[in-house]
Structures are given as C-alpha cells and as structure tokens.
Design a protein around this nucleic acid. Structure first.
Lengths: 131, 131
DNA sequence: CAGGTATATACCTAATTCGGCATATACAAG
DNA sequence: CTTGTATATGCCGAATTAGGTATATACCTG
C-alpha cells in the first residue's frame, strides 16, 4: 500500500505499461481486449499486468474464463496525481489516442451484444458471428 | 527536444535522479553542492547528471572550475506537468524534504559570503575558513 | 609551466529488465 | 473426464542499468 515515488515511476517507465494504464483509466478491461487493442502478444500483456498488479497499480478479478483488470479503487495521493498526469499527457500523444480510439470502437461493438467484458453469453455470440 | 512520455518516466525512475531533480527545481546548483546535499559519491552524482543532461532534463553551464546544473528554461508540456507533479509529491516525502532542508541551510550559509554557487571569491573565502 | 580542484568518462561487474518459448493453471462446455 | 479457451508462470538469453575504480579533462593559481 505504501509505494515510494520511485516505485511509481518504475511502473511508468515502460511503454506497454503506460498504454495499459491509459486504457484502464477509461474502465476495466479483460486481458484479451487489452491484447487486441495493444496488438501485443498475450504473454507480454499478461506479464506487464502481473507487474502492475504486484505493485498495486492494477487489481484483477476473475470472471469465468477471463481476468478483468482495473485500476485500484483507492490509491495514494502520489499515485493518483501521477496517473492523472499520465492521462493528461496521453491525450496529446498519437499512440495513446489511437489506443483509446480502438477501445471506443471495441466498446461500441460489444455494447450491441452484452456487457463490455466477455460474459458467457457474449462468448457464444462472438463465436457464432466469427464462423 | 521531443521526448516521449516513456523517456520522461525513464529519467524519473531512479531515486538519485529524483532527488537531483527535486533540488534543481528550487534553483541552479553546482555538482559539489549536489554531492554534499545528497551525500553521494562524486562519480554517481556526475553520471546521473550526465544522464539527465543527455535527455534534456538538465542543462549545464561552466562557471570557472564548477559546473552549474539547472532545469532547462523551456520544456515540453509533458515534462513540465510531470516535474510539477514530482515537486508536489516530493513535498510529502521525508527524503526529499530533508534534501530541501539541507539545501536551505547551504543556501543561507553561502548567502553570507557570496553567490550561491562557487564564484572564485567564494572559493578563497571557503578555503580561508576551512583551514 | 606545475600543482590543485572540480567534474567527466572509460571500463568492468553485478544486478535487473524485457521479451520470447514452452508449459502450467483455471474455468467452461460437453 | 476430455477438450478448448483464457491467462499465468518458469526458464532462458539479450540488452540495459547502476555503481565502483581508475583515469582523463578542464580550469584556476601561482
């Protein structure tokens, strides 16, 4: 619960982690969606999520087969300030903006047939559509 | 001049660099004073300064024997935001507060006999006093 | 020029980090 | 219990990093 400033910055000094945090700032996401939006291999995404989770920058809950990650509900002042700063800066950066745009598309697409993240019903629907 | 967000955070993810940036946030400082305040060996301080300088987070000017480091006059919005955030957070942290306190002491001590950083006159004065 | 002081750099090493491959675990469906 | 899907982890190698020692450079003074 008590992170030093350096530890916060150590979490922020990797591009993939920044992109993940930017996306989680807009709401909870499961790993497969992060993977899809980031265009990065599963193992890479999963490891960075584990890194963030181990340091309290992300929390995970299981939902059936899927792991849904989100930012922790309550965070220290330092962390909150830095995440806010990140969100601000990300708004100006093409990479982060593109990620957010992809997230929006995905969210809208999923809204047509269920909850944002992978309920069993959504799975069947997706399977039916993709074949 | 164009730093990505990650590059900024990479500069911030080392404790010594954070302490240096916190001190430079209060004004220019020469290496020997940084060394004294931080209580770190010369080579360590010097290397981190070189690191920051190479990435545009610090600028150096020579003043006789001494190198005076400071934050760059104009910086990108992202950098400015993050440095401001750092200053805010540092105000709550005992390590950074102690550094700032030592800086204050040093500044007051130097104010009695010249400019903050090591003018030739100050050198002679110091030499005279320390023997 | 010589000697001294302040700072930077070359070089080495230990430690850490990141990414990938392969494999393990957790759950759901049949 | 088997199969398939989603996610996590163990292990490895390449790259980077941080710190130290020794040395170089830059400047001042005499």
């Amino acid at each position: 619960m008590d992170m030093t400033l350096v530890q916060i910055y150590q979490c922020l000094c990797d591009q993939t982690r920044l992109r993940i945090l930017n996306l989680l700032g807009e709401g909870p996401l499961c790993v497969c969606h992060l993977q899809e939006i980031l265009g990065e291999p599963q193992v890479k995404v999963s490891k960075h999520l584990a890194y963030l989770r181990a340091r309290g920058l992300a929390v995970a809950r299981r939902q059936a087969n899927w792991m849904v990650y989100s930012l922790p509900a309550r965070t220290s002042g330092e962390l909150k300030a830095n995440l806010a700063c990140l969100q601000d800066c990300a708004r100006e950066d093409p990479v982060f903006r593109a990620d957010s745009a992809r997230l929006n598309t995905l969210t809208r697409r999923l809204a047509q047939r269920g909850p944002i993240c992978c309920a069993p019903a959504a799975l069947k629907a997706r399977r039916a559509l993709s074949t």
